[in-house]
């Protein structure tokens, strides 16, 4: 009988450590070490994300990231003793995401539909296994994310997903329009206008 195999991380089920959850909202915090060429490449990518015309558009369409950020950490500020003076040999890429939805679905989406984008952001990091297949890529992200479980994570509207916010914003114009005219309309006219609003806004309700 062979020794027990280490279960592949993507099979552990819960995906997200509890500290990274507030209602529907989930935090990801990841550090990766950047190779030399990344020091030149990442600033170009950050300055001109349109180098990846599809990536930001795809993120927009996938509609599950509220806010995300990438930062290249090349040095840490000095605050006096006893802080050790640290000279970083390589840049470290900080990534954080504030998103909704299950971890599994999230990284699947990255792998399958943001393949080029993920390679652009993490291709210059040590250990990046490629975005596809999702298994090894999930392990790569999870390994760092688990170590960086948030001690406190806050979302101001923890039950609202990105899609709900965007739908609600779209409805706002329709509702405002009817609101302005509601008082002038007869009840029958109002009912007809209300039905028209519900028809126009049905994809957002």
């Amino acid at each position: 009988m062979t020794a027990v195999t280490t279960p592949v991380l993507s099979e552990t089920g819960t995906g997200t450590p509890p500290g990274n959850v507030d209602g529907q909202a989930i935090a990801i915090t990841v550090f990766s070490t950047v190779k030399r060429w990344g020091r030149a490449w990442l600033p170009v990518l950050f300055l001109e994300p349109k180098l990846l015309p599809q990536t930001l558009g795809t993120l927009e369409k996938l509609s599950f990231i509220h806010f995300a950020r990438w930062s290249m950490v090349t040095e840490l500020a000095w605050n006096g003793a006893p802080q050790p003076k640290t000279r970083l040999r390589r840049p470290h890429l900080y990534f954080e995401s504030n998103f909704n939805g299950g971890w599994e679905e999230y990284i699947d989406a990255f792998s399958y539909v943001l393949r080029e984008g993920m390679a652009a952001f993490w291709g210059s990091s040590y250990g990046f296994p490629g975005a596809v297949p999702p298994g090894p890529f999930k392990d790569y992200i999870k390994t760092s994310d688990r170590r960086l479980e948030a001690s406190h994570f806050y979302s101001a509207y923890a039950d609202s997903t990105v899609t709900i916010v965007k739908q609600a914003l779209e409805l706002d114009g329709l509702v405002a329009d009817l609101r302005e005219r509601a008082a002038e309309l007869s009840p029958e006219q109002f009912k007809a206008e209300f039905s028209a609003l519900l028809a126009k806004g049905q994809r957002c309700l």
Binding site: P43, H66, A68, R69, A156, V162, K166, A168, L169
Partner: peptide, 21 residues
Amino acid sequence: DCGLFYSAYPHTTVAEVRRVV
């Protein structure tokens, strides 16, 4: 500093999110 900062609804404040939701 951020290298790249992404928001799905960059022009909407917290108060506005709460109101429309």
